[in-house]
């Protein structure tokens, strides 16, 4: 067999088989227990609803994806800046760290209405909510990356009379790249969750709706098949985000692994 095909099969076949088994079990359960469609629709019903509403689901996924990407991007920029400040002084790090943890522990569902109150109903608030939930992993990972230094590397720079700035630009920042990539991978999933939560509260108005609003709407009107379709779409979107960030990250860290 073609080795490339073989590898692709080895990669994709197991999860696809599992997926098929789950769908069959799902269908079997609905038929066996005679579950009403407003509680659990059959896979076929979900697929049909998804097909009927594919335009709305697609544009919803695009809108949600756009907001998540912007939120993630903002968290990368701000998170790296904060981590940079943290890495410059132990004192600043000690002073600021509890508030960074606050970002991690604050229930975003409780904060979201406040954000909307401050920034209004609309896209900007959703991006901000996504940004807030994505920020913490970027801060912690980047701070770790900037401050975890091989003592010999530090001595190497010192023997060569390197300045603080040279050490930062030529040692700490590039050395932090794998850590930033790891943080971004975690945040890629979180950013989608942040947008969905934001859209629950702010997705009204206009004629463009994100997946979060579709979920909210489908739930409120008991359109369970549609709800399932929207949830599955947002899961796929999260997977796509994760794959995208992982792909970019792998490109950035190719050299570390010795495969160019």
């Amino acid at each position: 067999m073609n080795p490339l095909l073989h590898r692709a099969l080895a990669l994709f076949l197991p999860p696809l088989v599992l997926f098929a088994l789950v769908v069959i079990a799902w269908n079997g359960a609905v038929v066996y227990w005679e579950l009403p469609p407003y509680l659990v629709p059959t896979p076929v019903a979900v697929l049909n609803v998804a097909k009927e509403n594919r335009a709305a689901l697609w544009s919803g996924a695009l809108l949600t994806g756009k907001a998540a990407l912007l939120g993630l991007l903002a968290s990368l920029v701000v998170g790296i800046l904060i981590a940079f400040v943290f890495s410059q002084s132990r004192l600043i790090q000690r002073a600021g760290y509890p508030y960074a943890i606050f970002l991690q522990t604050v229930p975003i569902v409780a904060i979201a209405p406040l954000i909307i109150l401050w920034f209004g109903h609309g896209f900007q608030s959703i991006v901000i909510i996504s940004f807030i939930v994505s920020l913490f992993p970027i801060i912690t990972n980047t701070t770790t990356g900037l401050t975890t230094l091989d003592p010999n590397m530090v001595e190497l720079f010192e023997v060569n009379n390197a300045t603080r700035l040279q050490r930062l630009l030529k040692l700490q920042l590039p050395g932090a790249v794998p850590y930033i990539v790891a943080g971004a991978r975690i945040s890629s999933g979180l950013s989608v969750i942040g947008v969905i939560v934001g859209e629950f509260f702010a997705g009204f108005g206009g004629n463009k709706f994100g997946l979060g609003y579709l979920i909210y709407f489908a739930n409120a009107t008991l359109k369970t098949s549609y709800l399932f379709a929207a949830v599955i779409s947002s899961t796929l979107l999260g997977l796509a985000m994760f794959a995208l960030i992982t792909g970019i990250g792998n490109l950035l860290t190719l050299r570390w692994r010795g495969t160019r």
Partner: peptide, 28 residues
């Protein structure tokens, strides 16, 4: 006028051989 060789190669993994060797000149 001093160079130090460590027990570990202590190379920057994101730099090619050429650019690792160049580092002390860059720093100067």
């Amino acid at each position: 006028d001093i160079s130090f060789v460590f027990q570990q190669p202590t190379l920057l993994p994101w730099r090619s051989v050429e650019k690792n060797v160049r580092l002390p000149l860059e720093l100067r």
